[in-house]
Amino acid sequence: MNLLLINPNTSQSVSDLIAAEAQRAAAPDTRISVLTAPFGVAYIETRFESLIGAYAAATLAAEHWREHDAIVVAAFGDPGIAGLREALDIPVVGLTEAALMSACLLGQRFSIIAISARIQAWYRETVQANGLAERLASIRSLDRPLQDIGRVQEDHAERLKALCLSAVEDDGADVIIIAGAPLAGLARSIKSRIPVPVVDGVSSAVCHAQSLVSLVPVPARSGSFAPPPLKPSQGLSEAMVRLLAGTDRR
């Protein structure tokens, strides 16, 4: 099984964290590839930045999807996954969606631990879009500037742990979701010190992607996820044009 994880952020240090956690979560016979956005921002915090990240992810997906059995959009907030599901014939999984589904199997109410206060509005809207707003206990976040996005876990280790404990003790969370690719792997390292299950988006997405590939789903040819209709386009990459034209489908 070949899984492609796309980091819609431009930070290679974050891609390294994604790759390490994905390898730990993957089955022995699963091959992991990680690609970093060729343009965009270092880390996505806002709705507008997510639009840029979605197009970066779509660009990479159009170029590389045929060599893989599933794609993971490796950013919390899942930029572009609905559109990618229309265009691709393989499963597409997002970190948020996968983490939320895992959390719902482990408890009733969940809290999300995030890297910044600005990111909270977008995360809350993503939870609502997945129909799970009533199960969200809280979103807690770091409130200090990030010096190095690749070192968030090391620079803020104690504060992140304290946020998890506050979500349990003060907000009544049954499950903690550690949000965002820069925090990939943190759940694994702190779970023994948190009194409820702790969910990681990258490992959840890898496991869910593997399950979907194993189920061998039929690609949508009707319904709301049917391929986009053929129409003239301009200024797109050759790979994107082929994908939109349907000539690159399996």
Results as ranks from 00 to 15, higher is better:
residue 116 S to N: 02
residue 170 D to E: 15
residue 154 E to W: 01
residue 104 C to N: 13
residue 132 L to N: 01
residue 130 N to H: 15
residue 166 S to N: 06
residue 142 L to D: 10
residue 96 T to N: 10
residue 118 R to E: 15
residue 164 C to H: 00
residue 141 S to W: 13
residue 124 R to K: 06
residue 156 H to S: 05
residue 162 A to Y: 05
residue 151 R to F: 14
residue 101 M to A: 04
residue 133 A to F: 06
residue 120 Q to R: 09
residue 142 L to F: 12
residue 170 D to R: 12
residue 137 A to P: 15
residue 142 L to E: 13
residue 174 D to T: 01
residue 153 Q to Y: 01
residue 160 L to T: 01
residue 157 A to C: 06
residue 99 A to P: 13
residue 109 R to D: 06
residue 145 P to M: 13
residue 176 I to E: 11
residue 164 C to A: 08
residue 176 I to P: 02
residue 104 C to K: 07
residue 97 E to H: 14
residue 156 H to N: 10
residue 171 D to F: 03
residue 103 A to G: 08
residue 132 L to Q: 01
residue 150 G to N: 08
residue 171 D to S: 05
residue 164 C to K: 00
residue 126 T to M: 11
residue 169 E to I: 07
residue 102 S to M: 11
residue 141 S to G: 08
residue 121 A to S: 09
residue 124 R to S: 14
residue 130 N to I: 13
residue 175 V to F: 03
residue 140 R to C: 06
residue 148 D to Y: 09
residue 122 W to T: 15
residue 114 A to K: 04
residue 119 I to G: 05
residue 124 R to E: 15
residue 147 Q to Y: 13
residue 162 A to W: 04
residue 159 R to A: 10
residue 171 D to E: 13
residue 112 I to V: 09
residue 168 V to Q: 02
residue 101 M to S: 07
residue 124 R to A: 12
residue 159 R to E: 15
residue 156 H to K: 07
residue 135 R to F: 04
residue 176 I to F: 00
residue 160 L to G: 00
residue 168 V to Y: 07
residue 112 I to M: 05
residue 126 T to A: 12
residue 102 S to V: 10
residue 131 G to L: 11
residue 146 L to N: 05
residue 113 I to W: 13
residue 175 V to L: 00
residue 132 L to W: 07
residue 95 L to M: 14
residue 155 D to I: 14
residue 157 A to W: 02
residue 169 E to S: 11
residue 142 L to M: 06
residue 168 V to N: 01
